[in-house]
Write a protein that binds this DNA or RNA. Structure first.
Lengths: 115, 115
DNA sequence: TTATTATATTCCCATATGGGAATATGTCAA
DNA sequence: TTGACATATTCCCATATGGGAATATAATAA
């Protein structure tokens, strides 16, 4: 075997900085390929290719309108990352500890915090 | 150019599933290479190589003790990911909306939520 | 129909894996 | 010193990029 495909999962897909930039733009609003090109100033094929990867892992969806294609982010697909990160939040204190406490209070979920 | 190095940053480093497994183990306790090998059941060089990548992005640190090397996770290095994800949390509702409200309340940070 | 616009796809190439196997290095124990 | 143990490194190879350039495809406008 070799290196993992970038389309293997969401973690791999966002490993590429440029794809994170696209996501950051798309979260603001649905956008066309050329709108993205205007913003990020990369060649159009570059944008299209990265969008293609994001689409394969369902991080973006596509809406056709004439010859335009509106891309939209699907934020929910990022949850696996948030959940994976969550298990470490309790180790870096401050803000996220407060989250733990908060969740414990209102949900009685019994988060395993030893402090 | 070509594909980004896995040691480029934390996002790239955790793109590899096996490295996430190692991190998940190390968060439980400091561990030796062979302890990890026993747990994950991969060849020792595989474990060492992945640890090497994690170390280059500072996600783990090393402590020598005789011929052993204890690896320890540095959870703080995951914060950039948590922060990057945070900007999307408000879009997937429920729990994390509550976080936003919570943070607004206690910190008056003026999080930009349009609801 | 034809030119133009919007976007995707294909080719080519340099580069970076990740795994397996073998080996090197470092340290302790006998 | 010498052998055993713990870990890292090196080699080799198949594979997957990501970018650039060129081209294909789709849809609209003239």
């Amino acid at each position: 075997m070799s290196r993992l495909k970038t389309t293997h999962d969401v973690f791999s897909a966002i490993g590429e900085p440029r794809r994170r930039v696209l996501i950051e733009q798309l979260v603001l609003k649905e956008m066309t390929v050329n709108e993205l090109v205007d913003i990020v100033q990369w060649p159009q094929p570059t944008v299209s290719k990265h969008l293609s990867v994001l689409k394969k892992v369902n991080l973006v969806s596509e809406r056709k309108e004439g010859r335009f294609r509106y891309y939209r982010i699907e934020p929910k697909e990022l949850r696996p990352i948030q959940e994976w990160i969550h298990q470490f939040e309790k180790y870096w204190g401050s803000t996220m500890d407060q989250l733990d406490n908060y969740l414990n209070q209102i949900q009685m979920k019994g988060v395993d915090s030893e402090h």
